[in-house]
Amino acid sequence: MDLIFSIDPGNVYSAYSILDIEQGLKPIRFGKVMNEEMLKVIEEEIAQIKYFPIEMVASYGMPVGATVFETCVWIGRFIQAVTERSKVNPIFVYRKDEKMALCHSMKAKDGNIRQALIDRFGVVGTKKNPGWFYGVSKDVWSAIAVGVTFYDMNLTTRYLL
């Protein structure tokens, strides 16, 4: 199984998704957990993972607060957890790349990215009739966007959807 484990990191909580390439990037596991818990999720899942994209912060010339630097520390800890336990190379995905790959506009917001994913893969669904993204909420959309963007930018010549 070829799986993508993607993370939308935060300073306290981070969202993740595990996308199955063979099922057309279907999210097979996902969630938003405290960062300490994310280290455990990485440890549990890393043996199955082939690709590990993680959203990286970027400077656009504006001042940032402590939470951005705390997020950077966690990005480093997640990368360390992956590289210590596997031969998987973490890949940085930047938010600007997500916006351009999924929405073709730097002006895209979270709602635009969510809608672009729904337009591409299908509806969220309901409990009675679960769709492609049933159960996905909030930052998990961003984690999925990281994985899909990584795929689009790096793997589309190797796999056919």
Score class of each variant (00 low, 15 high):
Met1Ala: 06
Ile4Val: 08
Ser6Cys: 12
Ser6Glu: 04
Ile7Asp: 08
Ile7His: 04
Asp8Met: 02
Gly10Val: 06
Asn11Gln: 09
Tyr13Phe: 14
Tyr13Ile: 08
Tyr13Met: 14
Ala15Pro: 01
Ile18Ser: 08
Ile21Val: 15
Glu22Val: 10
Glu22Gln: 14
Gln23Tyr: 13
Gly24His: 08
Lys26Glu: 11
Pro27Ser: 07
Ile28Thr: 13
Gly31Glu: 02
Lys32Ala: 15
Val33Gly: 00
Met34Ile: 09
Glu36Met: 03
Glu37Gln: 14
Glu37Tyr: 10
Met38Phe: 14
Lys40Asp: 06
Glu45Phe: 05
Ile46Ser: 05
Ile46Asp: 06
Gln48Trp: 06
Gln48Ala: 09
Met56Asp: 10
Met56His: 09
Met56Thr: 07
Ser59Ala: 11
Pro63Tyr: 03
Gly65Leu: 11
Thr67Pro: 02
Val68Glu: 05
Val68His: 06
Phe69His: 12
Thr71Cys: 05
Cys72Gly: 14
Val73Thr: 13
Val73Asp: 08
Trp74Lys: 01
Ile75His: 02
Gly76Ala: 04
Gly76Val: 14
Arg77Trp: 14
Arg77Met: 14
Phe78Arg: 02
Phe78Asn: 00
Val82Ile: 07
Ser86Gly: 11
Ser86Phe: 04
Ser86Val: 11
Val88Tyr: 09
Val88Lys: 04
Phe92Trp: 05
Val93Tyr: 02
Val93Gly: 01
Lys96Pro: 05
Lys99Trp: 00
Lys99Gly: 01
Ala101Ile: 03
Cys103Val: 14
Cys103Arg: 07
Cys103Pro: 13
His104Tyr: 05
Met106Gly: 12
Lys107Trp: 07
Lys107Pro: 03
Asp110Phe: 08
Gly111Asp: 12
Gln115Ser: 15
Gln115Met: 15
Ala116Arg: 01
Arg120Ser: 11
Val123Ser: 09
Val124His: 09
Lys127Cys: 06
Lys127His: 12
Lys128Leu: 12
Asn129Val: 10
Gly131Glu: 02
Gly131Leu: 06
Trp132His: 11
Phe133Pro: 03
Phe133Thr: 07
Tyr134Gly: 05
Lys138Pro: 05
Asp139Pro: 12
Trp141Pro: 00
Ser142Met: 15
Ala143Arg: 00
Ala145Arg: 00
Val146Gln: 01
Gly147Trp: 06
Val148Lys: 03
Thr149Gly: 05
Thr149Arg: 01
Phe150Lys: 01
Tyr151Cys: 02
Asp152Gln: 13
Asp152Ala: 10
Asn154Glu: 03
Leu155Trp: 05
Leu155Gln: 10
Leu155Tyr: 08
Thr156Gln: 14
Thr156Cys: 07
Leu160Tyr: 08
